[in-house]
Nucleic acid binder design. Sequence first.
DNA 1: GGTGAAAGCGAGGACCA
DNA 2: TGGTCCTCGCTTTCACC
Lengths: 157, 157
Amino acid sequence: MPHPVTPLDAVDRALLGALQQDGRATVGELAERVHLSPSPCWRRVRQLEDSGIISGYHAHLDRHHVGLGVLGFVQIGLYNHTAEITAAFEREVQALPQVLACHNLSGRYDYQLEVVAPDLEFFAEFVRTSIRSLPGVREISTSFSLKEVKRTVALPV
Amino acid sequence: MPHPVTPLDAVDRALLGALQQDGRATVGELAERVHLSPSPCWRRVRQLEDSGIISGYHAHLDRHHVGLGVLGFVQIGLYNHTAEITAAFEREVQALPQVLACHNLSGRYDYQLEVVAPDLEFFAEFVRTSIRSLPGVREISTSFSLKEVKRTVALPV
DNA sequence: GGTGAAAGCGAGGACCA
DNA sequence: TGGTCCTCGCTTTCACC
């Protein structure tokens, strides 16, 4: 059981919701939002952090503002599924900063990568070179995001 | 031009990188990392926030710890692509907290949704009811994440 | 869980080079 | 732009109810 599920009460859930919305909320603000005084509120937040439920705090950037106008999904089929090939594939994927996420999928393809790039030309070149040459790659299917309809950083808690 | 790309120098990039890693880094810590004194460092961060490059700060949760063990991608084809149908579809998707992300895609399907759920049963039920009944849905294809090989919150800047 | 308080520090502004 | 104070407020962490 690699992932213990800690039972959360309503106050914990409210704290998690608030911190997902605003990761820089102060203990005072949080205390007000969950109707608790600062001290116990702070103790709860500490516990949520220490138990690993809150894995970190991050600034979120607007990718268009930093010149990453293109986001695409790259689905990949491998030649074979030996432990060596998949391990090598997964290791090399980690090293590509343009790859924001990579999932080992059920279904038709083996992996789906979420990739960002400054423009379509760069994206195509990246797929043609960096991704094409990953270990064991047999088949590639690419879809672009035409519109980011929804993107939330908040899990439903 | 809805998305201005602000030119960033090396120090700005370093600040963005640091804040993506640790959204609660203090100005003092940041100043040290980018070899600047706190005040100009603080001004730069302010500017990155005000210009919208930094769109916010968020706590990141471990989804397994909060009982969301299943993540899947749901690809959807619509019956038709009138403005009314797509607008209705996109509006209703916003209201589903289990849907973390939704992209309008190029290629075979119209949309791809990223969905979380406590377990496979819940996931299947969610797709069968909530997603199936979204406006205009004709075709659904689902893939589960068997393994989250990579997930970063940091854009390459 | 709540209160109160002490100590430290970080944010943010004024001002200069 | 960057650097150096300075000050206020808040965070954090006690001990105790």
